[in-house]
Every structure is written in structure tokens, then in C-alpha cells.
């Protein structure tokens, strides 16, 4: 529970940065999707159920500040978490490249899920054009962000492992 609340608070801070600071620094175009990166990190490092709750909660928080329909990002980030958890189990998560590869596939998957959800459930005639057009730049920004933030992610993962070792001993 503590970790879920922690992720929610951290997510809210990230969203506030994403809506205020990043547009000032990077302009009005695409910018790094830090919430997606956080979800991927949770997917690769967190246990299944608390992680799933955290991802859903992060998505719902993002929905308050983005888009028109509440629950859209909740659903998408939950699905991304599921994919990251399922695939992440097969990988060596200590390798920092895993997060980079996860970002590459996560960003693409995020865009495809967004398009599919909008086409299936909402009336978004031209929405998919926009998402596809922005995808390359979004990929670039997310990859740059994950490379810059990799020490932070490594620190979080290391802290979690240390806590787990302490509990086990």
C-alpha cells in the first residue's frame, strides 16, 4: 500500500512537471512521456498486483490532466504494465539496456493501444493520424529521457532490491 501511494505521489509530481515545466522548456510539440517511463519501470521491477494497481492509478491520474475521457490512460497503462511484467520476467532486469528496449517497445505499444482504443470505443476520426505522425519524435524524446534518467531508475531498482534483501535476511 505504501509503495502504491508512493508511486501515486511521485506520478502526480511527474505529471505536474510534464504539464508545466516541460512545455516551457521544450515548446508545444511532443515531449517525454515520463508517466509511461514510470509505468515501464514499475512493470519491470514491481510485484504483479501492487504494480498493476499503481499503473492503473497512474493512468487515472494522467487522465485528469490529459485527453477528454477519464479512464483511457488507466486502461492503456494497465495493459502496458501487463506486457512489461510478462516480458520482463524473461529478461535480466539488472541490465540497463532492458529499460531502453522497454521504452522503445512501450512507446510504440502505447501509441498503438491509444489508436486501437480510440478507434474501438471513441469517435476519433483523425486522432490516429496525429498519434502516428508524432510517434517518431515521441520515441526519440522518450529514449533520450530514459537514457538521461537511467541513474534514477537504477537507484529506485537498487533501493527495492536492498529492501527485499533486508526483508529476506
Amino acid at each position: 500500500m505504501k509503495r502504491i501511494v508512493g508511486y501515486a505521489v511521485f506520478g502526480l509530481i511527474v505529471i505536474l512537471l510534464q504539464t508545466t515545466l516541460l512545455p516551457r522548456l521544450l515548446g508545444h510539440g511532443p515531449r517525454p512521456d515520463l508517466v509511461l517511463l514510470l509505468t515501464l519501470h514499475i512493470g519491470l521491477n514491481e510485484r504483479a498486483l501492487p504494480g498493476a494497481f499503481s499503473a492503473w492509478l497512474l493512468g487515472c491520474l494522467l487522465d485528469v490532466f490529459s485527453g477528454t475521457t477519464f479512464g483511457l490512460y488507466g486502461l492503456i497503462l494497465l495493459l502496458i504494465f501487463c506486457a512489461a511484467t510478462a516480458v520482463g520476467r524473461q529478461l535480466n532486469r539488472d541490465n540497463s539496456m532492458v529499460m531502453v528496449v522497454a521504452t522503445l517497445f512501450g512507446t510504440t505499444g502505447h501509441a498503438l493501444l491509444l489508436i486501437t482504443t480510440l478507434l474501438l470505443f471513441a469517435d476519433a476520426d483523425q486522432g490516429w493520424h496525429l498519434v502516428l505522425r508524432q510517434l517518431p519524435l515521441q520515441l526519440l524524446f522518450n529514449l533520450l529521457a530514459v537514457i538521461v534518467l537511467s541513474p534514477l531508475f537504477a537507484m529506485f531498482a537498487g533501493h527495492k532490491q536492498a529492501t527485499a534483501r533486508r526483508v529476506l535476511s
Binding site: L49, W56, F70, G74
Partner: peptide, 28 residues
């Protein structure tokens, strides 16, 4: 099972929100 339940909840929340776009929920 809990995973599927959570996914179902997320889907239901989204589909419910689609019908009430002009409504701001208490959470929001």
C-alpha cells in the same frame, strides 16, 4: 483472476466515462 478483475474494472470505468464526458467526477 485479480489481474483480470482489475482489467475489467479499468475497461468498465473507461466505457462509463465515455457516456459521461461532460461530467467531472469526484476523483477528477
Amino acid at each position: 483472476l485479480l489481474f483480470c478483475l482489475l482489467l475489467l474494472c479499468a475497461l468498465l470505468l473507461y466505457s462509463n466515462s465515455l457516456r459521461q464526458r461532460q461530467h467531472t467526477s469526484l476523483f477528477e
